[in-house]
């Protein structure tokens, strides 16, 4: 189930990252791109539920760790959206993906060479704003005055640790400036079509078999068509 894959690193070298896969050499092969940061943890269980359903329906799927994420030992502070996008392209090639399925912020990383789906896409600035706010609220509770505005100005120059995530200056600038437009061959799926409560918002991790069924049903219908 777990394999390693050769992942391009920011300095041009190649590292080794882990991937969870259901691979029986079938013709339809789906690259899964998870959300970044906190939502990666909140959605991991659900993503595995989704993969089990694809597997049961004859679709191979691959969930690679991106450098600095999940079990990766690469420092998060060295990573960037551009670097993760390059890693996603490399993973797609390595696993021979025919389609891509990305969740939330993972949608920013979809290779434009593959047809696929982006589930509940979020804006880069919204993700950054949530993390800035978590830090300034925590600071205020501790009696320290840190405004989001000052934190952002500092982070754009020097990088910043937000809500426990060690973010480099490049990544903060990408999040602050990024107006992400999905590639033409990626179809976005809104949460309303899947139904139920958005799992990435929940303070406690959870999973929802009914939502996994609905989402996989939407994609299988398109794959068959």
């Amino acid at each position: 189930m777990y394999v390693s894959w050769p992942c391009p690193l920011p300095d041009g070298s190649t590292g080794e990252e882990m991937a969870l896969r259901f691979d029986e050499d079938r013709s339809r092969r789906l690259l899964m791109i998870p959300p970044l940061f906190d939502e990666a943890n909140k959605f991991r269980h659900q993503l595995v539920e989704i993969m089990r359903r694809f597997d049961a329906n004859g679709v191979d799927c691959f969930l690679p760790d991106l450098p600095g994420c999940n079990e990766s030992t690469a420092p998060l502070a060295d990573q960037s959206i551009a670097g993760w996008r390059a890693a996603a392209i490399a993973a797609a090639a390595y696993f021979g993906a025919t389609h891509v399925f990305a969740v939330r912020s993972g949608g920013w990383l979809v290779p434009d060479t593959l047809p696929g789906w982006i589930y509940a896409l979020v804006k880069p600035r919204q993700v950054l704003r949530g993390m800035l706010r978590a830090r300034s609220l925590a600071a205020r509770e501790a009696g320290v005055d840190e405004s989001s505005e000052n934190l952002l100005a500092c982070g754009r120059q020097e990088g910043l640790t937000l809500a426990g995530w060690d973010l480099g200056a490049t990544l903060i600038r990408e999040l602050d400036e990024g107006e992400f437009v999905p590639p033409a061959n990626a179809v976005t799926i809104e949460q309303g079509k899947v139904g139920g409560k958005p799992l990435w918002l929940r303070a406690e991790n959870d999973h929802d078999p009914a939502q996994a069924d609905a989402l996989v049903g939407i994609i299988l219908a398109r794959l068959a068509g």
Binding site: Q126, G130, L137, A138, A163, L201
Partner: peptide
């Protein structure tokens, strides 16, 4: 009990997004 400070950050960001408003730090 569900509304801790991390949930507050998520709540405010979601309110901004769904209602298309901006909530400043000093408003909170």
């Amino acid at each position: 009990p569900e509304l801790d400070s991390m949930a507050v950050a998520g709540l405010l960001t979601e309110i901004e997004d769904r209602l298309d408003i901006v909530i400043e730090d000093e408003d909170v």
